[in-house]
Design a protein around this nucleic acid. Structure first.
Length: 733
DNA sequence: AGCACGCCGACT
DNA sequence: GTCGGCGTGCTC
């Protein structure tokens, strides 16, 4: 009889002791009774004694043998995540598993699945046919007895050769000999397909060499290059050399919308079965099989969004984080981890190189490069011969004539007209969907607000609806002002819908395509739209953020950006960094083929230093100034921060709770605790939100402080109706 | 977080 | 007389 310590997904920062018939390997999934319920947990260690009275220790219900146990380095990653982000280990571990592995069922019992493995007899005595789920594949190698059981359950008697057919066509062979010993062999995956990549430029070549030369130890490289400079080709080469060494590769990207193209490139260069794709939009069965394919080494190249940082890879030889500056690499609820930072931790533990790619590296990453901790690798020009960087210039919107035509300046209109004549494509970028961001009454000042958020409702004219862009709350457009009865309600400001109307009026002949999350909601619409752009059946593209990333439109030669100044004036100290990244990214859409591109930035601050750096292509100069400013003002990365956030129905309750929490905070000279304040979006989906900012010049000191503080906060019961969490390295204020 | 146990109001 | 409100406390 052994005592096993089990991590469970409960908001209690403790492990729970259970008895087991034998010692279980750390990382084993188990089903346990918990109160009156049954839950899946993961064994973290087996111990001789428990501090819990023996009478209270209950036995494990079931050991889940359908997957191999999680590796020690994986558990170490989870432990680090739990410690750094101040969350219970069980919450971290269970949330990192794909949904099917969190349920108290064997995968084989999860019902029919297209991801099953069909086992068919190929040359043995006993007639045998049957379907075994993906679960088996994972047990095949590590667990001889279970494999035999599975096979015997299918009627195999020994001396059988069984072919395991994975859903994607990969064939593996299971050989069971006379003495019922089983062996699985998977066909060699790399290097098998011919390498048909383009020849590398000198800059790409030296980047590849720098990373290759740094193998065998932890080394962080910042791959700094604008859109079109060929970062992807560098990734592909490095992936190839890593796979050839028998090691695996982890590639993280910020958005799901970026994975389809990258996925296609990786699959075409390697093979379908070599690549496992992980993101939350995939079907549960697919998520489970991708997980298992990574765990058993069938897929050695994992491509995914932030959640893929927890992929259970064997023998990691290289980690790539593309667009490492992108805020969506940080999880914004639950366990609030930064996939980029955890990727760096993983690379360090695995003693392998990591490549952080970006045209606009985050200031955190850049300051590490300046300090010599990371190595800066530059890809200075566009990789394609003849392709030029676009010409960027500002358009002064302070002149009266500039404000006509729904926000489009005469300069922009002329440039758009010119592209129409030349039969080239244009992109108008406005990062605000809907018709108008505000509906108001000009007679009494009433404004349509969300009932559940501290935000205005956005007018969506096509659907004749008002919608909250934060919580999704919707309502009809009122016929008259609910406050004074005035029937003349005015939409204030501009969104993409309104701009579309204005553009169509200006250019009746033009084929205009609006791309935002409203027009691309239907499955497959986005891909269709991208195809129609490539086919040349669009003249003017108009859209939000969605358009800014990763797409290459050869006929596009003009980009116009609208409403740029809001971000310039924002209170958030990260706003300039984000604006630069966004403009750099959207500018990169122009002139990628042989046609030169032009970018027009409409602004009332045409001489702003940010634009000057953007125009001269001097991101590092901009970053140097930002770093100096942050240092002067005491902001990250010069210092470390965390927030304690509280949410309740009434803002006062959240603030009161935070005040009490501050009373519990340990005293430390190197810790600054600010006053509780409402968040900038003070109410969201019915919850009023406030927080306390905590800063320290030393990350270690902040960590130690947070550990002690959160222990005290967990111990003190939080009042009913108030929920709280700690956000380490927060992005949202 | 769930979920049980527990002690006070309006109903068949 | 009991169904049910959610306050408080526990989960190995």
């Amino acid at each position: 009889m052994s005592i096993v310590r089990v991590a469970l997904d409960v908001p209690i920062p403790e492990l729970f002791d259970y008895s087991a018939e034998q010692a279980l390997a750390p990382g084993t999934r188990v089903v346990v009774p918990f109160g009156s319920r049954t839950r899946v947990g993961v064994v973290v260690e087996t111990v001789a004694e428990s501090s819990i009275p023996l009478g209270r220790i209950r036995p494990i219900t079931q050991v889940l043998t359908d997957t191999p146990s999680l590796a020690p380095d994986w558990i170490a990653l989870a432990r680090f995540t739990a410690r750094y982000y101040q969350r219970p280990l069980g919450e971290v571990i269970l949330n990192a598993l794909p949904p099917r592995l969190r349920r108290p069922k064997l995968l084989a019992e999860s019902g029919a699945s297209p991801n099953g493995i069909a086992l068919t007899e190929t040359g043995a005595s006993a007639p045998m046919r049957g379907t075994v789920r993906t679960s088996i594949l994972a047990t095949l190698r590590a667990r001889q007895p279970q494999l035999r059981q599975h096979l015997e359950a299918l009627g195999a008697t020994g001396a059988s050769v069984i072919r395991a057919l994975l859903h994607d066509g990969l064939v593996a062979e299971v050989v069971m000999d006379e003495s019922a010993q089983c062996e699985l062999s998977t066909p060699a995956i790399i290097p098998s397909p011919p390498w048909d990549g383009p020849t590398l430029t000198d800059a790409q070549q030296s980047a590849v060499q720098a990373v290759d030369a740094s193998r065998g130890a932890f080394n962080a490289h910042v791959l700094f290059g604008v859109t079109g400079s060929g970062k992807t080709e560098v990734y592909l080469h490095l992936a190839r050399t890593t796979l050839a060494r028998g090691e695996s590769v982890l590639v993280l990207v910020p958005e799901i919308s970026l994975t389809p193209q990258l996925e296609q490139i990786f699959i075409s260069r390697f093979s379908k079965q070599a690549v496992a794709v992980m993101h939350s939009a995939r079907a549960e069965g697919e998520r489970a099989s991708a997980w298992i394919a990574a765990q058993n080494g069938v897929s050695r190249l994992i491509l995914g969004t932030r959640l893929a940082v927890f992929a259970p890879l064997q023998k990691i030889g290289l980690i790539i984080v593309d667009e490492e500056h992108d805020p969506s690499l940080k999880q914004q609820d639950g366990v609030r981890y930064s996939a980029r930072d955890l990727a760096v931790f993983r690379a360090r533990e695995a003693a392998c190189p990591i490549v952080l790619g970006s045209a606009t590296p985050s200031l955190e990453t850049y300051s590490n490069a300046c300090a010599g901790r990371y190595r800066l690798l530059r890809l200075p020009e566009r990789a394609r011969a003849g392709a030029l960087l676009p010409t960027i210039r500002t358009v002064d919107m302070r002149t009266p004539s500039a404000m006509q035509a729904d926000g489009l300046s005469p300069v922009a209109i002329a440039a758009l007209g010119e592209r129409l004549r030349r039969q080239e494509q244009s992109l108008v970028f406005l990062n605000r969907r809907g018709y108008a961001p505000v509906l108001g009454c000009s007679a009494c000042g009433w404004v349509a607000d969300c009932e559940r958020c501290a935000a205005h409702l956005v007018v969506h004219l096509a659907e004749r609806r008002l919608r909250c862009h934060h919580c999704g709350y919707g309502g009809g457009v009122p016929r008259a002002c609910p406050s004074c009865g005035n029937v003349d309600l005015t939409p204030f400001g501009r969104g993409t819908q309104r701009l579309e109307v204005a553009l169509q009026k200006l250019f009746p002949e033009a084929r205009i395509l609006r791309i935002d999350s409203d027009t691309t909601r239907a499955r497959g619409r986005f891909t269709e739209m991208i195809e129609s752009i490539h086919a040349g059946s669009v003249d003017i593209l108009l859209g939000t953020q969605i358009l800014a990333k990763g797409h290459d439109f050869p006929k596009l030669t003009l980009v116009v950006t609208l409403n740029t100044d809001a971000a310039l004036m924002a209170a958030d100290y990260r706003a300039p960094e984000r604006l630069f990244a966004q403009l750099q990214q959207v500018a990169g859409r122009a002139g990628r083929a042989s046609l030169p591109g032009e970018v027009l930035i409409q602004t009332r601050y045409p001489d702003h230093p940010l634009f000057r750096s953007l125009i001269s292509g001097d991101y590092l100069g901009f970053a140097d100034r930002q770093l100096a400013e942050r240092e002067g003002a005491g902001f990250p990365p010069a210092i470390s921060e965390a927030v304690l956030r509280a949410e309740s129905l009434e803002i006062a309750d959240a603030i009161t709770h935070l005040g009490q929490a501050v009373q519990l905070a340990p005293q430390d000279d190197l810790i600054t605790i600010y006053d509780p304040v409402p968040m900038s979006l003070a109410r969201l989906a019915g919850w009023s939100r406030a927080h306390v900012l905590v800063q320290s010049p030393e990350r270690r000191t902040l960590q130690a402080f947070l550990a002690e503080w959160s222990a005290r906060l967990y111990a003190a019961r939080s009042p009913r109706g108030v929920r709280w969490h700690i956000d380490v390295d927060p992005l949202e204020f």
